[in-house]
């Protein structure tokens, strides 16, 4: 029996509401009801839901960017949520995040090479002497030229920036990569490139990936197992041997139907025209 690399147990989070009343008079708004799931080594787990469904809050709690109110985040058996800030700092390396907006998540004044080198130096994963070579290798791994190291983020397109963000996450040699809507702000054609890159990296590095998004068809393509979230709660889990076509929850079906898909259009056109090409 393979042990999960990450076990999330009853993790919940509320945020205080702004109010003119005294503290405590207004109950805090629950962003995430107690959530539990396992992540297996080398697995890609999909989390799908709309804005406000709590999927980003869940991701932030797992990465301990946010302290959960309740529950445990067990990484290789150790509860990260119980650690102090100092101990946590040494564990952060293992869980890295790629965020949605590649324009907002890179320091515009830091050359790409500096941004990647910083990560390795902070975590003592490379010496100053060898860091240049490691940066070049990372850029190559995400499909960018080594010359990219000498450029500022402004020189790159959205898709290229997202590759840089992925390289920066990989610089920490993580065990788990959390990709929080990594392709939602990219062109459809570029989305495919970034998704394929994540799949390649999972294969090469046996990374465990949590892939968050709102496009159920895309998530279904890359993630065998999918968690569906609505209003801060996990409402459905689609197992690796299940299919989204058999989804039980009305919300999952609504998500599925809301995505405009070429296959649906093809079916509609086929019924109205005589000789479809496909």
């Amino acid at each position: 029996m393979v042990e999960p690399i990450l076990r999330v147990e009853g993790v919940s989070k509320s945020y205080a509401r702004k109010s003119v009343l005294p503290r405590g008079a207004v109950p805090p708004r629950p962003a995430l009801s107690p959530a539990s799931f396992d992540l297996m080594p080398g697995e890609i787990l999909g989390i799908v839901g709309e804005s406000g469904s709590g999927k980003t809050t869940l991701a932030r709690c797992i990465a301990l960017l946010e302290r959960p109110d309740t529950g445990r985040v067990l990484f290789r058996g150790e509860d990260l949520a119980a650690l102090g800030e100092r101990d946590l700092r040494t564990r952060r390396r293992a869980i890295q995040t790629v965020f949605q907006d590649p324009y907002a998540s890179l320091n515009p004044r830091l050359k790409v090479g500096e941004a990647l080198a910083e990560v390795m130096l902070v975590h003592r994963l490379a010496s100053r002497g060898e860091v240049g070579r490691r940066v070049a290798a990372l850029l190559d791994q995400v499909g960018l030229s080594p010359q990219a190291a000498n450029e500022y983020p402004a020189a790159f397109s959205g898709g290229q920036r997202q590759r840089i963000c992925i390289a920066r996450a990989l610089a920490a040699q993580p065990d788990i990569l959390i990709a929080d809507e990594p392709v939602s702000s990219l062109d459809v054609s570029v989305q495919a490139q970034v998704v394929n890159l994540l799949l390649d990296l999972r294969d090469q590095l046996s990374l465990s990936v949590i892939f968050i998004g709102h496009d159920l068809h895309l998530i279904d393509f890359i993630a065998p197992r999918i968690i569906v979230m609505l209003a801060g709660e996990i409402v459905e889990t689609i197992s690796a041997d299940g299919s989204i076509a058999d989804a039980q929850h009305a919300y999952t079906r609504a998500l599925m139907e809301a995505v405009p898909s070429l296959d649906k259009l093809a079916a509609r056109t086929a019924s109205s025209s005589e000789s479809p090409a496909q």
Binding site: D215, A258, V259
Partner: peptide, 8 residues
């Protein structure tokens, strides 16, 4: 910039 259900 919108979710699929809102987009729909």
């Amino acid at each position: 910039a919108l979710d699929v259900i809102v987009q729909d």
